[in-house]
Design a binder for these strands. Structure first.
Length: 328
RNA sequence: AGGCCAGUAGCUCAAUUGGCAGAGCGCCUGUCUCCAAAACAGGAGGUUGUGGGUUCAAUUCCUGCCUGGCCUGCCA
């Protein structure tokens, strides 16, 4: 069947995925498979720019791959691969680094953030992060890249690199990728104020047990003005309600919306309903995942197969790149 | 390569002349609340970067090494 083109997206191996990862990326990855030839990379090289210890790298890769595959990313239909297993990437990265303007790299907001976050580890790779990202996208001749708005400058940078390369070497080898801005719901953590993230420990893992999920939901911060059971609440500022809108039926959402405001239901009732719906939502996923987790070798085989398929595309691109440059 | 400075709890930092390594924030538990938050009470968390040395005793003094920052050079 004819698809609209090729999509590449990568995620750093952060281990077991949480609701933010799922709603922000994975769900979208699964949906895109219908219309595009997708390549999903576990970008371990990018992870090295911030990781100071790599002892969990392999396990984090496995855990994330399990979440991806069990969630519906289909390795028959898409390519699921490990970034570092395609050596051509390093080659293209080096070549692109000669075209990449340093001033632009150091001006990017993400780089400035990292300077603030890890002033003791400002490495060369950190500056070149967007170059490596561009290399990944361009290596596979991606037509589109699904990203959140925060990644927009990086995609724009990749487009400019492709243009610069093509102009400098008088070729049309590299394809400027379209930015496929996905409307990512801003998923807040259980603290109700900051973005859900593992490092803030305000996350809920999608592969968590029903008990663990319920426990974490009960810990969620609600409308602080609703102190007593008899007080009316305001769902508009309550993250529990936001989650209801994702995991509960329209009828239940309406019920919560009405009953919370007139103290018809309490937060405990509200949270129990949410936890129940979340657990129901992820039940089939968790069953599939548990099955897959019994055979970790199979997962690594899938990743290896994906990397091999990706390499075929990469080799073709690199032949064209070398030819365009006029390398002997 | 040389010179100077720094490294202490998850984070930011204290610790008198060399004398039991502490605080704030964060984290966990409890009280209180429908839950959560807030408040209060309690708790965990450390080979003081690391190996030697001096000393009755080293976070503190000496020294090798590691890491980071600033400066001066050398090579490509």
């Amino acid at each position: 069947m004819a698809k609209k083109g090729r999509v590449f997206s990568g995620a750093r191996p952060t281990g077991r995925q949480h609701l933010g990862n799922y709603l922000g990326a994975i769900k979208n990855y699964v949906a895109l498979q219908q219309d595009y030839d997708c390549i999903y990379g576990i970008v371990d090289l990018h992870a090295l720019t911030t990781m100071e210890t790599t002892k969990d790298l392999k396990n984090n890769t496995l855990e994330m791959a399990l979440d991806w595959l069990a969630a519906g990313i289909d390795p028959q239909q898409s390519i699921v691969m490990i970034q570092s297993h395609v050596l051509e990437l390093a080659n293209l990265h080096t070549i692109l680094s000669m075209v990449a303007p340093l001033g632009k790299l150091t001006d990017l907001p993400t780089f400035k953030e990292k300077i603030r976050d890890q002033p003791h580890n400002i490495n060369y790779g950190l500056v070149g992060y967007p170059v490596l990202m561009a290399a990944d996208i361009l290596l596979y001749k991606s037509d589109a890249v699904p990203v959140g708005v925060d990644q927009a400058p990086h995609i724009e940078f990749a487009r400019e690199l492709a243009r610069s390369f093509n102009y400098r070497y008088g070729a049309k080898v590299l394809i400027e990728p379209e930015m496929k801005v996905t409307q990512i719901p801003k998923v807040l953590g259980i603290d109700g104020e900051r973005k859900m993230s593992k490092s803030l420990n305000n996350h809920i893992e999608i592969a968590a047990t029903p008990e663990e999920t319920t426990k974490r939901v009960m810990m969620m911060v609600t409308d602080p003005n609703r102190k007593l059971r008899s007080d009316p609440g305001n769902p508009d500022i309550c993250n529990v309600f936001t989650m209801h809108k994702i995991f509960s039926s329209p009828e239940e959402v309406e019920m919560v919306n009405v009953e919370c405001r007139r103290a018809g239901i309490g937060c405990v009732d509200c949270k129990r309903l949410l936890a129940k719906n979340m657990n129901k939502y992820f039940e089939p996923f968790r069953e599939r995942r548990a099955e897959m987790a019994k055979r970790p070798d199979d997962i690594f085989d899938i990743l290896e197969d994906g990397s091999n398929r990706a390499r075929v595309i990469a080799e073709q691109t690199m032949a064209e790149v070398r030819d365009a440059i006029g390398m002997p």
